[in-house]
Amino acid sequence: MSADDAPGGDGNDEAFEGDDTDGNRSGDANADDRDALLRVSRLEAGYETGQVLFGVDLAISRGELVSLLGRNGAGKSTTFRAIMGAAVPRVFGGEIDFAGTSLLGRRPDEIARSGLGFVPEDRRCFPRLTVAENVRLAINHAANPLSLDAVLSLFPELANMRGKEARNTSGGEQQMLAIARALATNPEMMLLDEPFEGLAPYVVRRIEDIVREINNERNITVLFVEQNAVAAMAVADRHYVLDEGRIVETVSTERLREDADLRQRYLGV
């Protein structure tokens, strides 16, 4: 795939600036922690086989780029699924607020339309729909979407394979497609579930660039799940460390980089 030789940051920046739908978003990145865009408090959730989350607390302000770190089985994906209102896990207690309204008890499609863009794990796309149709689907069901051309202009790799079925694209292209699809809904915040998992190193770098661009240029708040502390440190400014269903640490990238003991204890690196 040709992801790495595509036009770099500059070309994309122009595309970002050329799109005026950006204007309606407030750009204050340093909002007070008390009026966080996404606030999860004392979240308890689990499956039929048992409880997984025992009181997860997150508070993410507008404009932040935050990672949710943790080992396999720590409850990262469960947290995401609970936020997105999936049928499983069941939420036992706690609160999830997004932009001042509670998300609990709302249908997943309503949550998606309320300004939360979701990029599922394993870069899930609709395999028999084409690249363009995948994006158009999100556009057709969003409250205030971008245009197809505006979205694809940010992903030159995808722009010239609009008619290709998603199942015939490479892993990196599928990940970009999943991100493009979430971006097309013009969300206030994006949740990415393991966006760098299982990709070749140079593709990982491209996806990292994209995630940073989304945050910097579009002022979209980003929360992503990651197992690998190194990858998370390369992208995010702040990190939540999740262990056995609880948030055990909230650290800056510098702290995480210096504190080898912390990484060893909770992340095994």
């Binding site: 999936a86 997943p108 599922p120 899930r124 609709f126 689907l137």
Partner: peptide
């Protein structure tokens, strides 16, 4: 193709 995903995309 994927009902849960379609729902998460706002369908």
């Amino acid at each position: 193709e994927n009902e849960a995903l379609a729902r998460a995309m706002g369908v």
